[in-house]
Design a protein around this nucleic acid. Sequence first.
DNA 1: CATGAATGAGGGTTCATTCAT
DNA 2: AATGAATGAACCCTCATTCAT
Lengths: 198, 198, 198, 198
Amino acid sequence: MASSVKDKKTKILDAAIKLFTRQGYHETKLDEVAKQAEIAKGTLYLYYKSKEDLFLQCLIDGFEKSMVQTKTVIESNDSTSNRLLKLLELQAELHRHNGPLIQQFIQSGITISSTAGAPKRFFNMMKEKVELVAVFFEECVKNGEFTDRFTPVQMALIYHQIFDLNLKFQMFQAPTISPERCSEMLFDLFKSKEQAKA
Amino acid sequence: MASSVKDKKTKILDAAIKLFTRQGYHETKLDEVAKQAEIAKGTLYLYYKSKEDLFLQCLIDGFEKSMVQTKTVIESNDSTSNRLLKLLELQAELHRHNGPLIQQFIQSGITISSTAGAPKRFFNMMKEKVELVAVFFEECVKNGEFTDRFTPVQMALIYHQIFDLNLKFQMFQAPTISPERCSEMLFDLFKSKEQAKA
Amino acid sequence: MASSVKDKKTKILDAAIKLFTRQGYHETKLDEVAKQAEIAKGTLYLYYKSKEDLFLQCLIDGFEKSMVQTKTVIESNDSTSNRLLKLLELQAELHRHNGPLIQQFIQSGITISSTAGAPKRFFNMMKEKVELVAVFFEECVKNGEFTDRFTPVQMALIYHQIFDLNLKFQMFQAPTISPERCSEMLFDLFKSKEQAKA
Amino acid sequence: MASSVKDKKTKILDAAIKLFTRQGYHETKLDEVAKQAEIAKGTLYLYYKSKEDLFLQCLIDGFEKSMVQTKTVIESNDSTSNRLLKLLELQAELHRHNGPLIQQFIQSGITISSTAGAPKRFFNMMKEKVELVAVFFEECVKNGEFTDRFTPVQMALIYHQIFDLNLKFQMFQAPTISPERCSEMLFDLFKSKEQAKA
DNA sequence: CATGAATGAGGGTTCATTCAT
DNA sequence: AATGAATGAACCCTCATTCAT
């Protein structure tokens, strides 16, 4: 029973993610979502209380997965460079799945109905994620591996931004940059002067 | 008469840019644009044939200005580093004015009605701009100043991306990076091994 | 088994009467009725074939009770004035329970879907009741106790109307009129000239 | 210009009154109202901001007319009996036009969406009217013409109720009671003992 | 018999576009 | 050229009804 419900919620969520991602919030009609999920339109409302709610759940879903995985990597006992590499791989994977939706969001979060607390909520999620990653960079700065020319939050944002770059490379059919290469670039950018001398 | 027409077109365009930028495409109603431009709603249709057309003109407007200025800088007789700095200042200025609109667009380009040739057209504009800047980097690579680890197109995209980064810094209240500093960072990233040794 | 069925029908009917009375036909959702009756929504359809049917049964239920009791009083061997008093008490009691539902109906009879024969059927019930009471007044007129300035049907309607009046008194926080007092008033209004002289 | 707007508002209002009266609030579709008013559905929203608003305006319209006329009669220099007769004629006329709508309302006022202040507002209108008429009866009581066995508010409600009675007489094809006759009945019911003796 | 998840027709509302003035 | 009232297609959401379990 529970699994059947979960299946249907997931089915709807998957359909919604797919369409919101491809077409954005406003261009996606609930008719389409229902058709894609192979259910009736009314059924959507058994699981999500409005279009906006559905959209938010799509984002929350991606974020929660990403938060959990990111936390796991950061808290693992591994060298800075290995953890950075793994984080980048993770983020790359995430971008492959959710990247465009998150992009959708950067404004959707701002522009969707101002009645609900939705945009704020989403921004808070983003913030939470950025702060989580910032903690990692802060440690790296503290133990002298990374420079203090950037604040940890800046570093966390640069880390996230790298993948937007890859998205654009794709759009312009330029070669994308592998996680390994990204890792290298970030190291070059972030390494402390002591490290640089070594 | 001609100037009056131009005035009115400009007035509408300015109003539209302001609102599209603040609120996004879908949240901006033509009623609002007309009111902001201090004209009647019907008048919009004397100058722009649809909402989508108006939106596109907003983008084209920004791009054309940016193309002209960018071209001027690139073709000026100045050192690579000075031209890069000027380009960055230009782009920073552009972002201050049109940044959010362009961001609007990154998806709008994807999501606005696919009936019209709009998205394609906009993508082509972006491409044109990227290629213009890529030419600059290509020269820099050819004359040995910049590395060939990146393709010119990649460089052009990184150059553009830097400002998205600053936008995000603002959102997260991290300090933004000055054009001078950006210029430095790009130099560090792009400089050839020969340069690096020097 | 039969009693269990009756119990469930009654349970549903009671729930429905309660909600239709409080909220009216359209504002009452079958979800609520099911919840109030502590059964599943689908079960409603085992006992009543549609929402409209359920509503009608609510009315019929009240009417049947009222018809039986009214008939009993009218056919009892008692003085006119006592019977009138008892009728009024009965009607007062009925109004306390079903009044609002009946009011609901005055229009519902007109406004509920015209496809079914529902309104007509309800009107016929009302008519039956009115005619039953009219018979009582007719006798009173015939034996000279009541005036013939009103037709028996008019008298029956005035008799029914008195309670609507009390409902309105309540709404406006004016004191209500007791059955005894109503009885008096009706007597004053209906008594024949012969009676008046006496 | 103003008259054209007023004409259209009136046209819509008339159509709405007609349909709300015949079919009730929920059974009346805005499609129908638009068709009846010979305008497009969207046009409704230029003049009324929602269905509920339209419905309320229908009621307010009737009430305002009725308030003005009632006030005029009450404040005229005429005998009590003449003024009562005129009030009854007025009310009869009003009922012919708005009666059923007002009936619609007695519950609609209670059951329509509880979000808006609509029902309260309507009840207040009714109250205002009842109190206006109550003032008239209060004077009659004070100068000894009418009994004090009823409160002025009760009298006002009885006065209004008389017409509901006539509506029901019509439904049951009993003869209706003329204003003159109503006036007589009310006099009989309300006259003071002193008057009764005279 | 009983359930409640699923359905989908239907209606209120919005807003880009048109057109008579 | 300019207006803004009028239009009507399109969409989100509700809820009575059905049906597989």
